[in-house]
């Protein structure tokens, strides 16, 4: 059995078989977040795509790639969002280099 199955995307609602009250609360929040508001549908889908890559969730990457296309984004725009996400992840790792430097400096003459 593979850990990730493509068909599981369609089975998400099965999480609600147990503690459906919690799942319903999550769904209400989730649906409310996606309503068009101060951000457009396209912007929200690009944020979703970027976060999906930061989380490296294959379900989310698949779903938000489709969402971005259906919101009118093209591959250049989507790839820029992925680079943004990746660059921030890279920067977040790199800034921790100072932790290492600090640690080394503390014990060095």
């Amino acid at each position: 059995m593979a850990y990730y199955e493509e068909d599981d995307l369609q089975r998400f609602a099965e999480i609600g078989k147990h503690r459906p009250d919690l799942f319903e609360k999550f769904m209400a929040w989730y649906q409310a977040c996606q309503e068009e508001g101060a951000l457009s549908r396209r912007e929200k889908a690009l944020i979703g795509l970027a976060v999906a890559h930061a989380l490296q969730c294959p379900y989310c990457i698949d779903a938000f790639s489709q969402s971005c296309l259906e919101a009118g984004s093209n591959m250049d725009q989507m790839t820029e969002a992925i680079h943004m996400s990746s660059a921030i992840r890279g920067g977040a790792a790199l800034i921790h280099g100072l932790q290492s430097h600090n640690s080394v400096n503390k014990v060095s003459m």
Partner: peptide, 15 residues
Amino acid sequence: MSTILPVIQPGAQAC
């Protein structure tokens, strides 16, 4: 209406 976030479709498993 379709959702922009198709990961989560309650009662999905559409035939």
